[in-house]
């Protein structure tokens, strides 16, 4: 599953149209649009809203190691020579309020340029390219490296990192302005996102293919057999852990173990009547599987 967050409806609109997403009215506090593979959350602007929306959605739809978190939205740029509509993958997120930094892992090859993004609690308009930091850091200007400015990334990262690993989180920012008063309209924002959507989604689907290779060691059937065997042998919880370890090893070494367990169980009078009988059979299994 891909969870996409945008701050605004006008950023979400191209995605809703691209994937034919339907509004899910089960979510009262936030606007959520869905299809089978994608959940789109409109967080509204600001880190707190972004974090609350992400955390509440992830608590309901718990992500797995195969899933992706994507934030797609517009941002300001410290460089006026970045054409409007330029898209960047963020490799560092700095929260302007706390000065804490967060680092999504950039493990997958990608077709974007990279930048770091500064998340500000309020809209920033400056005349120059340097923003003075709060007294906490001695008012030192932020490094002259070009940067982007948004209003959600740090909140999103902090909330999402409870549910996703750092390589599953992607922050893609599309330049819409240059930290000065602009006449940016919702239609223009929709257009800027629209311009990048093919590139983004083609890449994300390739990342998803890669992550979908991650599978649990046991299949559903093997899981069922493990439970059945544990019950039949009347194993304590610590013995169950040992059995699982043994079966996991056997699976990795020899492939599926269901036939061998079926044969083993067919040979015995089960369930065991005593714990010591279960232990005895466990030792036999060890001989068989090691």
């Amino acid at each position: 599953m891909i969870l996409i967050t945008t701050a605004l409806y006008c950023e979400a609109l191209p995605l809703i149209q691209y994937f034919h997403l339907k509004k899910d009215t089960a979510f009262a506090k936030f606007q959520v649009f869905k299809n089978e593979d994608i959940v789109l959350l409109i967080t509204k602007t600001g880190t707190v809203q972004a974090a609350i929306g992400t955390a509440s959605l992830c608590s309901l739809i718990t992500p797995t190691l195969r899933d992706i978190f994507l934030n797609l939205g517009v941002c300001g740029s410290s460089r006026e020579d970045d054409p409007a509509g330029s898209i960047f993958l963020c490799n560092k997120i700095m929260d302007l309020e706390t000065m804490r930094c967060f680092y999504p892992d950039i493990l997958f090859a990608h077709p974007f340029k990279e930048r770091w993004v500064l998340t500000s609690p309020k809209v920033i308009n400056t005349d120059g390219h340097q923003i003075s930091l709060p007294p906490l850091t001695g008012g030192r200007p932020i490094s002259p490296m070009p940067y982007l400015i948004d209003m959600e990334a740090s909140g999103l990262y902090q909330a999402a990192s409870y549910f996703y690993q750092p390589h599953q989180m992607f922050f893609l920012k599309v330049v819409s302005d240059y930290l000065m008063n602009t006449d940016i309209t919702p239609d223009k924002i929709t257009g800027l996102i629209q311009k990048n959507i093919d590139l983004v989604m083609e890449w994300i689907s390739q990342v998803q293919d890669e992550l979908s290779k991650i599978r649990p060691v046991f299949t559903m059937e093997e899981e069922k057999y493990t439970v059945k065997l544990t019950e039949a042998l009347q194993l304590s919880s610590s013995m169950e852990l040992k059995l699982r370890q043994l079966l996991k090893y056997s699976k990795l070494k020899e492939g599926s173990f269901t036939d061998r367990i079926r044969d083993f169980m067919a040979d015995k009078t089960l369930p065991c009547k005593t714990k010591s009988e279960g232990k005895k059979y466990f030792e036999q299994l060890k001989q068989l599987f090691l």
Binding site: I106, L107, F108, A109, P111, Q206, E210
Partner: peptide
């Protein structure tokens, strides 16, 4: 520009 179709990881 890197493309995942030729390789996935950086």
């Amino acid at each position: 520009m890197n493309n995942l179709s030729s390789y996935s990881y950086n």
